[in-house]
């Protein structure tokens, strides 16, 4: 579903991501772990087609993000670490705008917006302007917008930040549902307990370089993920 080959991205003299390669298969939840400034967001943004990279290739569903960015973007949904959503729109206007861009059919968008906004308990707030939303509500809105077009690949940067426990549980359920339907998820997190329980595979990045990746059981062995992570990054 997502194939990253020798991805390299520099900002000035600093290499934010250095020769990183990863392969995420359909049905897989892939966790991406690293310290602050390790290069997680740069990698995720490159995969989402937001950031241009210096060298390497990224394939989404067999399509190159460089050659066919629009084709790739149709298959993915991206949620950033800080959901800065249009404050001049109401929640429902934003969701309808996203559905328009993805050309989601009228009946399907109504059904999905209804379903996901009910799940995240945001329905009654959809007429409110986004400017009145809390961080958690904006995060929920970003999540709902991500599910409207039923993406094949979900790329998320710290998706659980700001969510209440119930919403966090709902997100995990939806992640599993998407993967059981053949989709894939690539997300970053600092909550190692979540990564350990939720992810099929894990990659650990340090100073732009991938230091370990593979199935969760193999990466952590008999230790906890926290111990493994601390050993590897120190």
């Amino acid at each position: 579903m997502l194939k990253i080959e020798h991805l390299t991205k520099s900002f000035g003299n600093k290499k934010a991501v250095d020769d990183l390669s990863l392969h995420i298969r359909p049905g897989e939840i892939y966790g991406f772990i690293g310290h602050n400034g390790a290069g997680k967001t740069t990698t995720l943004k490159s995969c989402a087609g937001i950031l241009q990279f210096d060298s390497g290739e990224i394939y989404i569903n067999g399509k190159s993000i460089k050659q066919d960015p629009l084709g790739c973007k149709k298959d993915i949904a991206y949620i950033p670490d800080n959901p800065d959503i249009y404050e001049f729109m109401s929640g429902i206007q934003y969701l309808n705008f996203i559905a328009d861009i993805y050309k989601t059919e009228k009946s399907k968008r109504e059904e999905r917006i209804g379903k996901y906004s009910d799940l995240f308990e945001l329905t009654s707030d959809l007429a409110q302007p986004v400017s009145s939303y809390s961080h958690g509500m904006k995060q929920k809105l970003a999540l709902i917008s991500a599910f409207i077009h039923e993406p094949k690949l979900l790329i998320m940067d710290e998706p659980f930040v700001g969510l209440d426990p119930k919403a966090a549980f709902t997100v995990k359920e939806l992640m599993r549902e998407l993967c059981s339907n053949g989709g894939a998820i690539f997300f970053s997190t600092h909550v190692l307990e979540v990564a350990e329980k939720l992810c099929d595979s894990i990659a650990i990045i340090k100073s732009g370089k991938l230091i370990v990746s593979g199935p969760t059981a193999e990466v952590k062995g008999n230790e906890s993920l926290e111990d493994v992570f601390l050993e590897l990054v120190e």
Partner: peptide
């Protein structure tokens, strides 16, 4: 400012440029 409660209703669709 008073809260406006959303009531589910039919949504209008638009093309990309129009959106």
């Amino acid at each position: 400012a008073k809260k406006i409660v959303y009531r589910k209703k039919a949504l209008k669709t638009s093309g990309t440029r129009s959106a």
